[in-house]
Every structure is written in structure tokens, then in C-alpha cells.
């Protein structure tokens, strides 16, 4: 049991890297997609819609296999498994994140926009000082769920040669045949990682919190 720990811990670090990288990619992708979706130009709106539907409408594993097996046949180069996994899992999460963010932005009441206009705030100030800060309490809980989903989805990277927990667990399972132990330990490690991530998101939530009444 003990001799498998170093390998599992090395896998844990890689899982953390893949998840963190994917979250960064997802945040950028979601922000861009929402900015495009909120634009009045159809030329910006439509590509964002297609991106969101494409990634939400198919499964992460298919996207990953497609990027790993099919895409290199079309591309002039082969991205490393790590890069491919981070990009695909990030774009996948970004499509879900975009819907969360867009819903929150659209839910800010019209009175808030009116007040910002009446105070002569520029449209940038309106967005970044009035609308977006109000969306934090709305997007943090679903975002916490999304990040945990992304942590769990990172296990798929192990199927395309990324040496994460899943990958190392498979190797250990094949070499030791201690099935219950290997996968039991893997489950527990993922569970602890999810708890840490959830705890961090709850801290962030408390930090971003402001009291909100029915009408302010």
C-alpha cells in the first residue's frame, strides 16, 4: 500500500496542474465567449454560440479523443498530451462557464443600468464597476460546481497519456493487481482534492459577499 503512494502523489500534482490550467483556459474562453454573445454584431455572436453549443452538445471524452487522435492528422504538428488535455478540458469548461456568466449578467435588473447611465458612467465603467461586481454572488456557487466538474473531468486526461492520478492508477493496477486498493486510493485523493477546491471557493464566496435586499 505504502509503496504506491509516491506514484499516486506524483499523479496528484499532474492532476492539479491539468485542472488549474484548464480552469485558466476556461475563464478566458468563457469571458471572450460572453463578450461576443452580448455584442450586437451577429458576426461576433454566432461564432460564440457555435463554440458553446459544440462543446456543450458533445462529450468531453469525445472532444479529448478527437483532439488527440483526429486533430493531429489535420494539424501540421502534434501538441503534447498535457497541452491538448488542458486546451480541450478548458474549452469544454469555458462553454459551460459562458452560460453561467451570461445568465448572471442578464439577471442584473434594468434599474441598475438606468442608474449607471443617469450617473453618466461610461459603458466600460458600467460593466466593470456596476454590472460585473453584482454578478459575483450569483456566479460563485455554480462556478464552484463547474470547477469540481473540471477536476473530475481531468481524470479523462489519463486516457490520453497524461501521467495524472488516473494514468498512474492504471499502471499500478496492472502491475500489482490490487484493484480495490489502487482505485480506492485514487477515489479518496480525488475526493480530498474536491473538498479543498470547494473549501477555497466557499472562502472566495464569503469574501465577495455583500448583503442584497429585495429592492435597493
Amino acid at each position: 500500500m505504502l509503496h504506491m503512494l509516491p506514484m499516486m502523489l506524483r499523479g496528484t500534482v499532474v492532476t492539479g496542474e491539468v485542472t488549474a490550467g484548464a480552469i485558466v483556459v476556461a475563464s478566458v474562453a468563457a469571458s471572450c465567449a460572453v463578450a461576443m454573445r452580448l455584442s450586437t454584431l451577429a458576426a461576433l455572436d454566432w461564432p460564440a454560440r457555435v463554440y458553446i453549443e459544440l462543446f456543450r452538445g458533445t462529450s468531453a471524452l469525445i472532444q479529448l479523443f478527437w483532439a488527440f487522435y483526429a486533430l493531429p492528422l489535420v494539424l501540421p504538428f502534434r501538441p503534447s498530451p498535457m497541452i491538448a488535455a488542458i486546451a480541450v478540458l478548458g474549452l469544454n469548461g469555458g462553454a459551460y462557464g459562458a452560460e453561467i456568466l451570461r445568465g448572471a449578467i442578464l439577471s442584473v435588473p434594468r434599474g441598475q443600468h438606468d442608474a449607471a447611465t443617469a450617473l453618466n458612467l461610461s459603458s466600460a465603467a458600467k460593466m466593470f464597476r456596476v454590472v460585473l461586481p453584482q454578478t459575483w454572488p450569483l456566479i460563485l456557487p455554480p462556478m464552484a460546481n463547474l470547477f469540481i466538474d473540471m477536476l473530475k473531468n481531468s481524470a479523462l486526461a489519463g486516457l490520453v497519456q497524461v501521467t495524472d492520478i488516473t494514468f498512474n492508477a492504471q499502471i499500478l493496477q496492472e502491475s500489482t493487481l490490487r484493484n480495490a486498493q489502487v482505485y480506492g486510493v485514487a477515489l479518496v485523493i480525488y475526493f480530498i482534492m474536491a473538498l479543498v477546491l470547494a473549501g477555497f471557493m466557499r472562502l472566495l464566496e464569503r469574501w465577495m459577499k455583500f448583503p442584497i435586499g429585495a429592492r435597493v
Partner: peptide, 21 residues
């Protein structure tokens, strides 16, 4: 909570390999 916080893939592996045992 445990089911929701762990990857489906590992749950599959766990059952697939452990049930026969």
C-alpha cells in the same frame, strides 16, 4: 457527496475491477 466529488471514470474502474474480486 462522495459520489459527486469523485470522477465517474474512477468509479467505473473501481467497480469493473473490484466486483469480480
Amino acid at each position: 457527496e462522495f459520489i459527486r466529488d469523485t470522477p465517474l471514470l474512477i468509479q467505473l474502474f473501481f467497480c469493473y475491477y473490484v466486483l469480480p474480486e
